[in-house]
Design a protein around this nucleic acid. Structure first.
Lengths: 210, 210
DNA sequence: CCGCATCCGGGGCGATACTG
DNA sequence: CAGTATCGCCCCGGATGCGG
């Protein structure tokens, strides 16, 4: 909350989104779209509820987040990114790319995980690597949530929820899932780490190769 | 220093460089190259000296910064970025780009300024906007330090120190300098804000146009 | 339940003083 | 010059309370 007091674009940016949790809140809104307060709380394991409320107010004042009051019947307010907030996507992508090597060591014992976090690496790793005929529907099961990779005509998207009639379903811990998706890990090694699946692995190969 | 405890590339990156001052330390080392402790202290107005020492230790442990012990005669240790640290450049550029609109309001009353901070916006604004014949040498004087813009055969560089035989010397506060460099401000408006110069304004026009 | 506000303990942060 | 030492303060984290 305290300004650096430096007339520099980087310092001014950090004055706004440099505080703890701020960029992770933006991550949630980027990955999941408009969210209720409770959705954010669930997507940000470890945050204190008063801090989330504080940060949302600050980000609102800074023009990064907007509060969308739901119409009277539904009664649940939504938080969403403003256009200005969406422009942080390039920052998050670069930061995430820089952080990828830190994932290779595997999750720490206490690390939390949410399946929708896979959207960034999946769409990052597989973007533009996909062949023209690479249609595939792959469901990922990391334990709690399920998410689905949809690929068709050169686009890869990850959406929440299970798949109807998937080509492949992968079950495993986040480390093994990320390992095979990024090709850092072979299917053999991943299986020894507990990965198992139903369906045709070729569906994943179609995405990873090219 | 406290980890977010989330198995996510963005969160892991913030575990390393998300703490206060860390990215600004990287900025200094990126803009100025290897620095002595005192240089960093001067380039980071507002930081407490114990914090700088702490952060440098953390960044060293994380493999972002390396300490280069000088040979015995010179006796002054240098801090520099590792290759891993240099990869943060794309992050800083995107963050700086996002922060540019926050500069339009002008510096706050208490804001500090260092002339070498101009390197990011100058090389960002003018990169690839420069015509093939845009050779120019422009000295910038914002009060204390002086820096020089060197342009030749399509490349723009900003280096510390005054220029020998400059085409143009600009004197003014940071807001006016950034204003004319970015074309946000006309020369007329800048002059009313205190900007004055010696030499041919055409040298700057050669850079700004294209 | 959802969306916070309040209270409290610990530690990160900021300013100054001091030392080899 | 290059840090270390010390000391408030306020921010952060965790728990609980509470109105709609």
């Amino acid at each position: 909350v305290r300004s650096y007091g430096q007339y520099c674009a980087l310092a001014k940016a950090l004055d706004v989104i440099g505080d703890r949790w701020n960029l992770l809140i933006v991550r949630e809104l980027l990955l999941r779209g408009p969210c209720r307060y409770t959705d954010l709380l669930h997507g940000l394991p470890g945050i204190a509820t008063n801090l989330l409320a504080d940060r949302l107010r600050e980000l609102e004042r800074a023009g990064v987040v907007a509060r969308e009051e739901a119409p009277p019947p539904v009664a649940s307010g939504l938080f969403k990114l403003t256009p200005r907030g969406e422009q942080l996507e390039r920052v998050l992508v670069e930061l995430g790319r820089w952080g990828v090597p830190l994932m290779a060591a595997g999750p720490a014992e206490q690390d939390a995980f949410r399946a929708h976090w896979l959207r960034m690496p999946v769409e990052l790793f597989l973007r533009e690597r996909v062949g023209a005929d690479a249609a595939a529907r792959i469901e990922l099961d990391s334990g709690e949530e399920r998410v689905t990779i949809d690929s068709s005509d050169g686009h890869v998207r990850l959406r929440p929820g299970p798949a109807a009639d998937p080509d492949l379903v992968l079950h495993g811990d986040p480390y093994a899932l990320l390992g095979v998706l990024s090709r850092r890990m072979s299917f053999e090694d991943a299986r020894e780490r507990g990965l198992h699946w139903q369906g045709e692995l070729a569906a994943l190969e179609r995405l990873r190769v090219t």
